[in-house]
Amino acid sequence: MQFVRNIRYSLKKYGYLLDQLVSRDFKVKYKRSILGVAWSLLYPLLTTGVMALVFSNIFRFTQPGVSFLAYLMTGLTYFNYFSEASNLAMSSVVANFSLINKVYIPKYIFPLSKCLFVGINFLLTLIPLYAVLLLTGTGVNWHHLLLPYSYLCLFLFTLGMGFLLSTIAVFMRDMFYIYGIVITLWTYLTPIMYDLAIIQNEVMQVAMKFNPMYQYINFGRMIILYNMTPSAESFGACALSSVLVLLLGTAVFRRNQDKFIYYI
């Protein structure tokens, strides 16, 4: 109870700062660009287009009635959020050292603000996603109302990773390089551009389902591409993975945050 009260007090006191940090990122991102926010819509469309062009020739995509473009874009929407938000969150504490060293601000606010900022961008990328769904004839159905559940899980998972990564990055700057490689590997181990069914090795196929990102993407695809309600296991796996990682990340962050100042 005490914990919940602390969070409520903290949100009330620092909510405005959070709001300012997020809108700062947003303002700075598109300053001096001619197309501005339109890039948030165009960029995912163009990158997906390029990938579709390349990968539709490499992998034989064999799902009758499913558009590869829609398949690819669903996966990318989820994964791009994770990769961008976790990366920004990782460097957020180190990057804001000048603030941490001068005034008292709860440090969790930096990874949190990054995850929220990229979250707004994520919501914008839903517009091109739905455009693709309509153009490819995939269509929209009532099950889409369940999608926010997977978005929430994705957010909590990413936030947990952000806490974990930003803590490690403070003590060990090598993490910036290591994570760059990890995220590349992670991209290929997640069935974004290919179908899990093409993996021949059965053990490997099962192991890949333990990837939380697979779970969130799969949840989304169930609804968007196959017009189905995700299974109970799918609901459970999404919730469990996100809550576990968030708890782990929060615990690690809280244990170490008072030491940050000596290492930055």
Binding site: R24, V28, V103
Partner: peptide
């Protein structure tokens, strides 16, 4: 990168 007006609000928020 922000204007003076925007910075007044940002810095104010930082000061609590």
């Amino acid at each position: 990168d922000l204007t003076a007006r925007e910075n007044v609000f940002l810095n104010g928020a930082v000061m609590g």
